[in-house]
């Protein structure tokens, strides 16, 4: 790398050349004086370099990430302790008060119900069926919601017309679509997917819209100044900049898919519809098997939490950390 200045007194040559080609070494007259001048500017430059390096060091603090142990004690341990305490209190109540087991089953009864369902193979079937539907339905919602959200975010008249309705749809419980879906699609998987779609899409659309709205205007301006056209501005600047809002929308969209799916599965049983967790819940209810009902609720809850913990939380944390938006807890 050439670091030498064109020594100012020797006359600066105004050219459109790029930095690496700006070189006056060979042709410059008065080599001795020039060499001296260059020597001193070199020194100046080295001075500046070390000065800047020192200031940079002073002004930036190394990023401290909490240790694995600290993260364990601050974010993993507390919920585990709480759940253990809850189960212990429950067991204690069952032991002391001895309620009727068909009205208040103990933790052991619920565990037994889970084991029973597992051994019969019903649990695995239900989990696989529901997860498959949930994930597939969610992906369809993403595929529909993303272009729709982008369109609404960028085309203002369309947004004024459709935006409030999309926001309204977010408030409408998606179970409300079940009767209509049954009439349209009968007791088939299409009914379930339709309800999931109506539940998840508005969240994804709204998340993306708010993400795009929060893109700082100066980033767009810089994109324009750097020479990006409409398309490249969208792909290189607006989309990546709106990612936090989009991911938040996806997360909420997943929650809505999972909820809608359960609601749909509980209501629509029989016909060509497979056996999902909601169906299992409904089955336990008809058998007045409260331990089975609680067991299924626990499974549904656990899957919801697991997906959040394994998929969305790391994705979000990584994205926010890269942008310096994450305030590490436990400091």
């Amino acid at each position: 790398m050439p670091h030498e200045d064109d020594s100012g007194s020797a006359g600066r040559v105004a050219t459109k050349e790029r930095i690496e080609t700006a070189d006056t070494e060979a042709s410059a007259p008065g080599l001795d004086t020039l060499a001296d001048a260059r020597h001193s500017t070199d020194d100046d430059h080295n001075d500046l370099r070390s000065l800047e390096a020192g200031l940079d060091r002073l002004q930036t603090a190394p990023e401290r990430r909490p240790s694995a142990w600290r993260r364990f004690t601050t974010s993993v341990l507390p919920p585990i302790v709480f759940v253990v305490a809850l189960v212990a209190a429950w067991q204690l109540y069952v032991v002391i008060a001895e309620p009727r087991p068909d009205i208040v089953p103990g933790p052991l009864g619920v565990v037994a119900a889970i084991t029973q369902a597992w051994e019969a193979g019903r649990l695995q079937e239900a989990v696989v069926t529901s997860l498959e539907r949930g994930v597939f339905g969610f992906l369809i919602a993403v595929a529909i919601g993303t272009p729709l959200g982008l369109l609404l975010a960028e085309v203002k008249p369309l947004r004024r017309a459709v935006g409030p309705i999309i926001s309204g749809l977010q408030v409408l419980p998606s179970v409300a679509w079940v009767p209509a879906a049954i009439i349209w699609f009968g007791l088939t998987d299409a009914t379930v997917y339709f309800v999931v779609l109506m539940g998840a899409t508005p969240s994804i659309v709204n998340g993306l819209i708010s993400g795009v709205d929060q893109v700082p205007p100066q980033l767009r301006r810089v994109g324009t100044v750097l020479g990006a056209g409409r398309w490249r501005l969208a792909t290189h600047v607006v989309l990546p900049a709106s990612l936090p809002g989009y991911v938040a929308g996806l997360k909420q969209g997943w929650a809505f898919s999972w909820r809608s799916l359960m609601a749909a599965e509980i209501i629509t049983t029989g016909g060509a519809i497979g056996f999902g967790l909601g169906s299992m819940l409904d089955q336990s209810r008809t058998l007045a098997d409260l331990a089975g009902v609680l067991a299924t609720i626990l499974v549904i809850l656990t899957i919801g939490i697991l997906i959040e913990l394994v998929f969305f939380a790391p994705l979000e944390r990584r994205m926010l950390r890269r942008r310096g938006l994450l305030v590490e807890r436990g400091r």
Binding site: Q218, L219, V222, A241, L243, M319, R323, G324, L325
Partner: peptide, 9 residues
């Protein structure tokens, strides 16, 4: 510009 307006990601 006055703000560096670097892409934060």
């Amino acid at each position: 510009f006055q703000e560096s307006a670097l892409m934060p990601w």
